[in-house]
Design a protein around this nucleic acid. Sequence first.
DNA 1: TAAAGTAGTAACCAAACGGTAACTAACATG
DNA 2: CATGTTAGTTACCGTTTGGTTACTACTTTA
Lengths: 111, 111
Amino acid sequence: MARKLIENHNECPITHSMNIIGNKWTSIIVYVLAGRTLRFGELAIRIDKISRKVLSNQLKEMELRGIVHRESYAETPPRVEYSLTKKGEELLPILNQLCAWSKDIDLDMNP
Amino acid sequence: MARKLIENHNECPITHSMNIIGNKWTSIIVYVLAGRTLRFGELAIRIDKISRKVLSNQLKEMELRGIVHRESYAETPPRVEYSLTKKGEELLPILNQLCAWSKDIDLDMNP
DNA sequence: TAAAGTAGTAACCAAACGGTAACTAACATG
DNA sequence: CATGTTAGTTACCGTTTGGTTACTACTTTA
């Protein structure tokens, strides 16, 4: 279930960072969750091509890391709401800089 | 050879960013190359656990994206030196923020 | 009684990724 | 003539990741 981590015996800080956000979906989930609360199903719709299984796994991992907050309501049908924690919100300005940085890189001339 | 990209029809900027640096090694290579020029073999030694094949592929992709500069000398034995482009250098302050952000996240309590 | 709606989970399979070992070219040295 | 040196590449294969489908539980509505 859990993703495999890069070994990091010499505690390289960037390797540590990559072990947290260096995968396909984590940053995208943070970005989509920016400033709002969304239910599981809404997240699944907004994030193109993600499967419910993978979304579920990622959210679980992010909750464990303290990036995402999960609030479950005992209703029928069930309702579960996801939002960013303070830590998650702190990632946003960094991601915005990343977006700005990558703006002028072209992927069309592909390998 | 080339990594598969996340589909991004609605041109989500963070998805675009993740298509560039959202993988195991790219950011780590940028970090190791910060402010210096290294030969292929030196990179392979400094980056723990990366295989020469994967390193070669990553560098090729990063060169294509304009993040890394490759200088090859027609000597025997061959010498190839890698360094960051201006674009690559611009990524560094962002990566440093990422390192600072991730500092207090604990991975030991693992999924 | 049947269907609909939600948030998952389990089993299973396909695709992507990563690693290993052997190999190349080209010259220098012993 | 064999060996070492470097930056790769190729073929092969195992691991990891991702995707699909079906299924659950519970209650409301038709």
